[in-house]
Design a protein around this nucleic acid. Structure first.
Lengths: 352, 352
DNA sequence: TTGAAAGCGCTAACAT
DNA sequence: ATGTTAGCGCTTTCAA
């Protein structure tokens, strides 16, 4: 059962009494074929359930219709959402996707890049990992240039020293949405929670927050802005714990609101806040980014900045494909967040 | 920059003053090459950063080293965990993965299968979707036989009418673990919540539950066993709501414990239980399956059956690859769950 | 509109 | 140990 000879374009041609070229023509629709023959050919294709080899096609016309995606970790909801959007977009354009997880390890990222290069992917999209760094790694940049020298590289962050295409979320705008909301609700003592300053998107948010601190006259001081941590649940809890200690030590009352670096981190922070016996949002409002499913699940439901993943994916893939075809494409696209979804965790008017 | 001629094995051969075959030999390590030449060749490979075309190789030796994965929805933590395990295993064996989401639509599944067939994937692994059905779709079975007639098909459920390879979790065993735990904690009135009986894994759990109802002398009646629903958060909440209504209508006190069909559904059920003013686990214990990250995040933390994803992935991939090589492989593997992780939601001794 | 033939970049006999 | 050559299954000039 594993052994029926795989049928080729030649088999079809022979039985249809035409040349292989003609079969190819009806397959690709690249030229006119007399209806009579076309029907004969299509009938055979159907009869044998013939599927032309994408491999052979890839070899002969050097367009593979493969787009490679390197993602930090698909188990992360944010990336999963992004990935699905990309796959959908690619699929609509007739492209297949090769997915590789890098677990944010540069070595793995390079290995995956090499595999993609070997597959002659028409383009590579990288989400997270090395392209998220505030200071691009020169080593990785070199790898991108060498390994993928001929392959358009589309990234969610940036990669200095390469001519990659950048399609990023406007993180500054996301922070603004949160700040405006919190301000309107009467919050003035607001703290940033989680994330690392060496991550570009985190740093951008941090910077804009500092700027808005002036505009909105938020309370200032690194007690509020330097509560660095990670991007996971446990880390959120831990960072929140440390923050409570810092404020206690400084003899300053805890902030009225916190802006967590993402939903998972926020969930951890919320756990710690509950343990502290503080109420959300009455004592502390909580807001974050990404608007993944978790926001509806946790208690209280979590306000979060939503992104239009479908659109971002579409732009990334279009950029990738067009660049792969050698078209002129903008090297920098900033995508506006869809908006802040206000839920219970921040839906509270604080009296000034 | 997009235009350096891609270099081939011939270019290397010429410059190294050897034949293309020799270059191929050092590339594949398939035969001995004199050290002197080997060094020269490797130097050139390095110099030009040459990556042999996987496409050409695939064409010439008919082994692509691609394994296709069709998954119901990668955004679902359970599948994401499974996928990552598969990708890891595949990667270790030198295989690349093509991932396709089917969103549990049979039409899409068939399309994805066709693409994989065109890519001459060495094997296809399908997680969820049509292969999860209790009664396999004859239509899908036909597609599997036709489209992937030559490609080994490894599934997480089953597909009657095909000679696919089955690597499944022992769901009956998973139910047993939960039942034993609940029994030991003194629960006797236990209800099943969520899922659909036309889904194989769900049905298997249901059946075993009925059997154990005898053994453990659990309260019986379809009030306890027929609270069907879906697999999502909102559905969990809804199913729980309906269940409360049914019990109230029947004048029966709510169960002491519920077994939800997965963690997300459990989260929904928990929300509804909280809304009812009942305490978990004091009034109702809650247990479910999959042990995804959410279990630690929600309040109270959720007891759940854990699977060893790495192992399952390894087995699936090994089966896929071996079958692809034409080796004799077992057509049916049942993988034991790793165990029940008891957390707060069920950690309560009920007085009999 | 159609066919013949060259080539895409590699591997695998088969010679030597 | 190494070179020659014939594919692998398509697409694509180039002719007819």
């Amino acid at each position: 059962m594993q052994t029926e000879k795989t049928i080729t374009i030649y088999d079809i041609a022979k039985e249809a009494e035409v040349s292989p070229a003609t079969v190819s023509r009806v397959l690709t629709g690249s030229a006119n074929v007399k209806n009579e023959k076309k029907r004969r050919i299509m009938a055979l294709i159907d009869k044998y359930n013939f599927k032309p080899s994408a491999v052979a096609r890839g070899l002969s016309d050097t367009k593979n219709r493969i787009i490679g995606i390197i993602v930090a970790d698909i188990r992360n909801s944010f990336y999963a959402d992004m990935y699905v959007a990309c796959e959908n977009a690619a699929s609509r354009e007739g492209y297949s996707v090769m997915l590789f997880n890098s677990f944010a390890s540069m070595d793995i990222e390079k290995t995956q890049m090499e595999k993609l290069a070997e597959w002659r992917a028409d383009a590579i999209i990288q989400l997270g990992g090395a392209v998220d760094a505030r200071k691009s790694s020169a080593e990785y940049a070199r790898a991108v240039n060498e390994v993928a020298g001929n392959i358009p590289f589309v990234v969610s962050g940036k990669m200095d020293g390469t001519d990659c295409y950048r399609v990023s979320i406007d993180h500054a705008r996301a922070l603004e949405m949160i700040a405006a909301h919190l301000y309107e609700k009467g919050n003035r003592r607001i703290a940033l929670v989680g994330g690392r300053p060496d991550v570009l998107s985190t740093y951008i948010k941090y910077q804009r927050f500092l700027e808005l601190t002036e505009k909105y006259d938020f309370e200032r001081g690194n007690l509020y802005t330097e509560n660095w941590g990670g991007y996971g649940f446990n880390e959120g809890e831990k960072t929140m714990d440390e923050m409570f200690k810092r404020f206690r030590l400084a003899g300053v009352p805890v902030p009225e609101a916190i802006i967590c670096i993402n939903d998972t981190t926020a969930a951890g922070a919320i756990k710690r806040i509950n343990a502290e016996g503080l109420r959300i949002p009455e004592d502390i409002s909580v807001v974050s980014y990404d608007n993944v499913e978790l926001c509806e699940i946790i208690e209280p439901s979590l306000s979060s900045v939503a992104y239009d993943y479908e659109t971002i994916g579409k732009i990334m893939v279009k950029t990738a494909i067009d660049a792969g075809k050698g078209k002129e494409v903008s090297h920098e696209r900033l995508v506006e967040p869809a908006g802040l979804v206000v839920r219970r965790s921040s839906n509270f008017e604080r009296i000034l």
